[in-house]
Each structure stands twice: as C-alpha cells, then as structure tokens.
Write a protein that binds this DNA or RNA. Structure first.
Length: 542
RNA sequence: GCGCCCGUAGCUCAGCGGAUUAGAGUAUUGGCCUCCGAAGCCAAGGGUCGUGGGUUCGAAUCCCGCCGGGCGCGCCA
C-alpha cells in the first residue's frame, strides 16, 4: 500500500510529464526546512523552467491545474500551493499523517524492514584483526560500523554474511611468537635481545606465563594465537557482535587459492618480470604504480592472498561485498580491484565496495594516547565497555560519519557517562514503557484507536517523523551510512520528549487517551527497531 | 612532491543527488517537578559553512586554485 507521500509524488510526476512531454524529470519531494512551507515541497517547476523556457511559477500553476482532480480524489493532501520562486508546497491531510501509527502497530518489529527490489547476497567483512593483540578502539569502531551496516542491509531485504578475516601465517604472527618466547626467557622490551618489531604489550607476558617449553617456537605460536583469538572472541561477545564466518588466510595457501591467483594473473598477460620479481600492471586499472606479485626471494607479497581472498568472495556468490577498513588501508582499494580486474573472470570493476573509517584518536588526561601494538599502550574495546558500558560505546562509535576523524575523550566519557547521548534515546523508550505500564491496558487494543484525535502540532510532527523511518533506513543502506540511524533516533527521541512534556497522555477522555497511547506505542516500537539495528538495547526501565 | 579524505557555533558533529530565513548535542545564561520517570522540557546568546575564484535565476552543497589537518605513497602486512 503506497504511502500518502508516494501517492502525491506519483500524481505530480504524471502532471509534470503532461506539461513537459519527453523531459525526463523526476519529481522528488523534500522536507522543507520551515513548517509554513508545508509537509513536502517539490521544485519540479524550477527544474523545468530552463527546458521549457517559461517562468517557474507559470509551470507550477499548470502542473497544479493538471493534477487538481487526482489530488482531490486521492484525499491525501490539501490543494497544492505555489510559493516562492515556483515551489509547489504540499500539506498532507491530518489522516494522511496519522495513519502511519496504525501501520507501525500492525508491523511491530518489522516496521522499517522492507523487501528489496533486487535482493542480493551481501558480505560485510569487518574487524579482521590479526591475532597479535587485544582489540583496540579502532577495531571497536569497525565492529560497531560493520555490524550496524550488516543489520541495516538485512533490514532492506538482503541476505547478509558477516565475515572476519585474519592473517594466521605471516610475519606478524612470527613476531608474536618470538615476542612471547623472549618473554618466557625473561627478556623485556627494549633489552638487547628483544626481537626486532616485537610486541611490547603486557599481554605478551601473560601469555608467556603459560608456556612450558620456551624452545618450541611452533607450539608457542599456536598457543599465542589461540590465546589471543579467545580474547578477541570474548571482546566481540561483550560487544554483542557475532560473525558468520571466520576466514583464515592460511586456508588460501592450503587450498591452492594463492597459487591459482598467481596463475590467473600470469595467464592474463598483465604480468612481467623485472629485477628478479614478478610484477602486475595494476597501472592499467588506475593504480599509480605497478605492484609486485612475487618477490625476488620467491615469496608472494600480501597483495596476492588479498586478491585470492576476494576471488573466493566472488566465487562464494556474494554479488556485493563491503570491506570495512581503516583509511590507512585505502591504497589497497585500487590495488585489489585492479588485481580482480586483471584476472578477467567477470568480476565487476567496482568490486568490492569499501567503507573506510578514520582512525580513532583517544584523549586521556588532556593528551592523546597513541594506539600502537608495538608500544604496547593503547585503549582496548574492553576498556571502553568497562568504562561507559556496551550500549554507549556502540552508539557513540556509530554516531559519526565513517570518514571523519573521531576524538574519543576518555575522561569525558568517564565523567559524563550518564549524559551520553545513548541514554537520551533509551530514556525515551523507557518513558513510553512506563506510561503503557501505568495505563495497564492491552497494547494490542491500541490498533483500534481513533487517530482523528491526534491533532496538535507536536503530534502531527511526531507522526511525520515516524513516517520517515523506512525511507531513512533505505537511504542509509544505499549510502552505507549507519550514522544516519543514530541521528534519526536522537531526533525522534527529542520530539517525543518535547511532546511528553507538552501533553498529558493518560487523560480522562478515553478516545483521546487511546489515540495518544497509540502514538506513544508507535514511537516505542520505532525506537526499539532502530536501536536493534545499532546493537543497542531498548530497556523498559533504567 | 603525488594520490585519497576532511575543514560548518567555544567544543563534538549532522546537512553536501543545489532551491524559499544555515541545524543538533554540549558548554554558558534564565525559567519549569502538589502533575504519566527532571537521565526530561522551555527560552536566550553564539557561525562571512577554511579561503579566493567559477558555473547557476539560486551554492555549505557542483568545478578549479590556495591554506590548514589526516592517511597513504615498500620486493611490510
């Protein structure tokens, strides 16, 4: 069933096509900044002014005349009005605005979810931390972003797989093993025998305590990796993030995928030998320099398993893949895509998609805490969760556009933990629950409330905000921008608090009371649905 | 130096498929609990949207230069 907005939009589109045959104008309804400009506005007349060579206001006049009958018949809105330079302002009828309440109560947890026009199998790869240390704040941002993104895409009708990839065989793992071994022998970071590029964190010493045979490097490696993987799993669990697939880099070698990728690249004719190494002409695909595939010592660069890994994503049937990574990996974007293109196996040129996030800067005591595994001192996801709670960390980390630098002021988060934005949204949810509890009626009965009693400006504004929820989710999914959900929830909660302070819900008049309760219940449902997407709880009491 | 990203209120950030008078939180100031939860609400002050050009009837939004910041620029991962 189309929404009132869809109805008006369709009628206006038809009108515009009749006024300007052949022109491919798309009528988009936008929310005006100022309420006096109506609930929606269209600038279609201004867009057509140039091609038609006529004044925008005259065109608007014609469009309104051409659609008057349909508009009246639809009952969706008041008669259209011209304003300003030639805008068509649209004022929805009261019933058009409030009907969303019933829709929400009917849909329940499904409100906002929609079937995709073209459902896809989508993979979101995120965190992908190597098992060389605990998860730090940057991983936390990735976990919050990636998990919310995955949930968002699921809500829009796609089949989403959450995947964690890690390097379990490279030089960093070797450094890890050597670091633990050194610790078992009582060598500390900075001392003469400490391994070059060793990991200095105290957690290395914790692992070393468990090692019985300091000479068995292989056993040390296995133990350290297992130990750290378990730690990371515990962190992720505490953060409420679950993965469907853990993909090991070593499996790419074991299954011959790396060799296959190299053969494929050579067969493509895009490689050449130089200085004893094998190079790929990635510059043919927009890279700023060609890349080495096989080093002169015979080993492969990390670029090869990277390509092989993405080939498996394609072969596993993921039409769309989103890699969530820090911006420090942005040079890999062009390179990986180039490698996939060179193989010539039908992978689209924009594959995979990337969501790159700036790294998180942690401030503590007025100074920046450097995030460095080597230095050993950094804030972990676990630290943050202990300080401000899981909900606050998740909400906070997903509340900013991915590509802006994020300053996480630990002192502020600690000192003002109760003023964290997440509580504002959760509080709105708890407030509705509290009102419903005092009313003590059957929420299912609210679907029958007469919504004609919702007339105040705040009530209609709230209803309009609720109606935006599905559209907002759709946009956020397309834009890969989960922060939009957090901003929406903040706005919805704000309007609810304002309403709650302005009007009493549990009034004597039963019909009015039920209408208001229905609106509140719809707000509660929408808040709960939005918070669920972000992995944040919606408490009934706080 | 080259490439990508960013520069909006004191601070943290939205808006950036152009459009009618620039937004929110926070901080500051002043109000609101005999009343459904004051973790709340109402109000005030605070911005030449980094800067200079360009396109346009119209630019925070699109294009170019410059300044400032981040990241990358390995036969490391």
């Amino acid at each position: 069933m189309p929404t009132p907005k869809d109805t008006v939009q369709a009628i206006l589109s038809g009108g515009a096509r009749r006024i300007a045959p052949g022109s491919a104008v798309e009528v988009l309804l936008e929310r005006p900044r100022h309420p006096e400009h109506g609930d929606y506005a269209s600038n279609v007349a201004l867009q057509l002014a140039k091609t038609l060579g006529r004044k925008p206001r005259d065109i608007a006049e014609d469009i309104i005349a051409a659609t008057r009958g349909e508009i009246d018949q639809s009952g969706a809105c008041e008669p259209l009005q011209i304003a300003g330079a030639g805008f068509i302002n649209i004022r929805l009828k009261q019933a058009s605005k409030t009907q969303i309440v019933r829709r929400i109560l009917d849909a329940g947890a499904a409100f906002g979810r929609q079937a995709a026009d073209k459902p896809q199998r989508i993979q979101v790869e995120f965190v992908s931390a190597n098992p060389t240390g605990p998860l730090h704040v940057g991983h936390g941002r990735q976990a919050a972003l990636g998990d919310a993104l995955a949930a968002l895409l699921e809500s829009q009708g796609h089949a989403v797989t959450r995947e964690f990839y890690y390097n379990d065989a490279g030089a960093q793992i070797q450094n890890l093993a050597l670091s633990v071994q050194a610790r078992t022998r009582g060598i500390k970071p900075g001392e003469p025998d400490w391994p070059e590029d060793g990991y200095a964190g105290e957690y290395i010493a914790d692992i070393a305590k468990e090692i019985v045979d300091a000479n068995d490097l292989d056993a040390i490696r296995r133990y350290a990796v297992t130990f750290l993987r378990k730690e990371q799993d515990a962190d992720l669990q505490a953060f409420g993030v679950k993965f469907d697939v853990y993909f090991l880099e070593s499996s790419l070698y074991a299954d011959g995928k790396v060799e296959a990728a190299v053969r494929g690249l050579i067969a493509s004719g895009k490689t050449y030998e130089k200085d004893g190494a094998l190079w790929l002409r990635t510059t043919d695909y927009g890279d700023d320099k060609d890349r080495v595939v096989r080093k002169s010592d015979g080993g492969y660069t990390y670029f090869v398993p990277d390509v092989a890994y993405h080939v498996t994503k394609w072969q596993r049937g993921f039409a769309k893949v989103i890699d969530v990574q820090g911006t420090d990996h942005h040079s890999a974007v062009t390179r990986v895509r180039a490698g996939l293109q060179a193989l010539g196996i039908g992978i689209p040129s924009g594959y995979p998609d990337y969501v790159l996030h700036s790294l998180v800067k942690v401030m503590r005591g007025g100074a920046e805490v450097k995030i460095s595994k080597r230095a050993g001192a950094y804030v972990t996801v676990r630290d943050l969760i202990e300080w401000v709670g899981r909900d606050a960390v998740r909400f906070f980390l997903v509340s900013r556009k991915a590509d802006t630098e994020f300053v996480f002021d630990v002192d502020l988060a600690l000192a003002k933990s109760e003023e964290n934005p997440v509580y504002y949204v959760q509080y709105a949810h708890a407030r509705v629950c509290s009102v419903l509890a005092q009313w003590a009626g059957d929420p299912a009965s609210l679907g029958a409330a007469d919504l004609a009693f919702l007339k105040s400006a705040k009530e209609l504004q709230l209803a309009q905000r609720l109606a935006e929820f599905p559209e907002m989710l759709g946009n956020a999914a397309v834009e890969l921008a989960p922060h939009a959900v957090a901003f929406y929830l903040r706005a919805l909660a704000g309007e609810f608090h304002s309403y709650y302070n302005a009007e009493r819900i549990l009034v004597e008049d039963v019909a009015l009371r039920d209408a208001r309760l229905a609106l509140c219940a719809a707000v509660r449902q929408t808040l709960a649905n939005g918070l669920a997407l972000l992995g944040v709880s919606a408490p009934e009491k706080m």
